[in-house]
Design a protein around this nucleic acid. Structure first.
Length: 433
RNA sequence: GCCCCGGUAGUAUAGCCCGGUCCAGUAUGCGGGCCUGUCGAGCCCGUGACCCGGGUUCGAAUCCCGGCCGGGGCGCCA
């Protein structure tokens, strides 16, 4: 089938193009059939535009083709742009050629918004669901977020790397791992690039990775997934305070860039992204416990701050904010204790939307101390042999953080379920599509 | 791992508590018809469903048990 090449996105059809010929391509969003005049709403990734067809003023074959259109048929349209006072958007296109390049059956779910479809059902037909303009917006914004993150990190001298996702041992202990059959051996899906990125500071100094991570935990909440995208950085010759500054900068840039590119579109859906101000509040773990105590939530020293605690703190001090100086023994083994008090650590969490969005720390860079930390947690240093080896060859002091990209997106775009910001989420019961 | 809740047309829901009035109501979609400026288009006609298995009962969408699937919360985690 031959048809002309698309020349414009729908959003680029402006009154300034009045009288110009354009080629549009997309899907039939709606047909308003008034009899001898038909209005076709054409959707593409960037928006909607109205095509107007009047019987008698268009070629017979165009009229016939338009009369046969169904919702979601994929079409290519050549036509003349008309600035219009009658059309609500102030602009419409009068087609001279219409090519139906693919037909659509009736959709299994409502993407037009007259009936809200359950998230579960939407995810079952996810690629259909993604046709909804709000979803196009979410994933265009999502792309802008990762771009902002990359730009910020490059500006700080970081380079992007890729580490293996099929690994032989646990990297942190903690979360359960998925096993995979690796030829004649059992291997695991990486729960984090932690050890690799630390090792890389001994050569590449400042590195980041945006990649999937896997956790075989049977949780069932609206903010956990078994496969998620982790944004990880690690910096040589730096401590937790240095990398917190970088994280702060990343978060500021993400908000700013999303707002610049999408605030108008987001507002249409009632989504308001508020730019946070630097510096973010930094409260210590001890201060957090005090604040929670005053609000009637008792957390024992050495316990993690529970979910509702995060929410109370968010209310109390505004967002985003950092909690710093967690007890050493509730953090991962590689976390560096404070020199002045080894019971607490050079660590932090970034909290937004009552959720832990990122966490990081200074890392131990002394082999003896790291070996000791492994032992204290009941881990066997021998199984970390190839990792520990690198600490004999000039391992610099270093620090870093890991951030849950989907959590950031969820909070940023004010979605109540993390699955909304993931194209094809993997959770306890969802392995397809 | 623990606790709570749910499953009715393609989609979203009413009905269930208090069994019969339900060959299951409504909206939207879909099919057909009318209409030359719609923009949540409108009006008319039509279409289509009680998760699976067992039990109680004269009678089950409705009550009981089991299974499957899903939603929410806690824990663990990011």
């Amino acid at each position: 089938m031959s048809f002309p090449r698309k020349t414009h996105w729908t959003k680029n059809i402006t009154p300034g193009l009045d009288g110009k010929e354009v080629v549009l391509a997309g899907w039939v969003w709606d047909v308003r059939d008034i009899g001898n005049i038909k209005f076709i709403l054409l959707r593409d990734r960037e928006g909607l535009i109205q095509l107007t067809v009047k019987k008698g003023t268009v070629p017979e074959d165009v009229w016939n083709v338009v009369s046969s259109l169904n919702k979601e048929d994929a079409i290519v349209v050549k036509g003349i742009v008309k600035a219009s006072r009658i059309a609500k958007a102030g602009i419409e296109v009068f087609p001279s050629e219409v090519y139906i390049v693919a037909r659509s059956k009736a959709l299994p779910i409502d993407i037009w918004g007259s009936v809200e479809t359950d998230l579960d059902t939407r995810l079952r037909y996810r690629s259909v669901d993604l046709k909804r303009p709000v979803n196009s917006l979410i994933f265009r914004a999502s792309s802008e977020v990762t771009r902002a993150i990359r730009d910020s990190l490059y500006n700080h001298g970081f380079i992007e790397v890729f580490t293996p996702k099929i690994i032989v041992t646990s990297t942190e202990g903690g979360a359960e791992l998925f096993t995979v059959q690796y030829f004649e051996r059992v291997a695991y899906l990486a729960q984090s690039p932690q050890l690799y990125k630390e090792e890389l500071t001994a050569s590449l100094e400042r590195i980041f990775e945006i990649a999937p991570a896997y956790r075989a935990e049977k949780h069932n909440t609206n903010y956990h997934l078994n496969e998620f995208i982790s944004v990880d950085i690690e910096e040589a010759f730096a401590n937790y305070m240095d990398v917190m500054d970088i994280l702060e900068d990343v978060i500021i840039n993400v908000h700013d860039r999303v707002n610049r590119a999408f605030s108008d579109e987001l507002n249409k859906y009632g989504i308001e992204v508020r730019n946070p101000r630097k510096p973010f509040r930094r409260i210590t773990y001890d201060e957090a416990l005090d604040m929670l105590g005053k609000r009637g939530l008792k957390v024992d020293w050495g316990e993690d701050v529970p979910k509702n605690g995060m929410e109370i703190l968010s209310e109390e001090i505004g967002e985003p904010f950092f909690i710093i100086h967690f007890p050493t023994n509730i953090r991962a083994f590689y976390t560096k204790p404070l020199d002045s008090d080894p019971r607490i650590s050079e660590s932090f969490d970034l909290v937004m939307g009552g959720l832990e969005i990122a966490s990081g720390s200074s890392r131990i860079h002394d082999r003896g101390q790291l070996t000791e930390a492994l032992r204290k947690r009941g881990l066997n240093p021998e199984s970390f042999g190839s990792h520990l080896m690198i600490y004999d060859y000039g391992m610099p002091p270093h620090a870093g953080w890991g951030m849950g990209l989907y959590r950031l997106l969820m909070v940023l775009l004010r979605r109540s379920n993390i699955r909304e910001v993931v194209l094809y989420p993997r959770d306890r019961f969802r392995l397809e599509p």
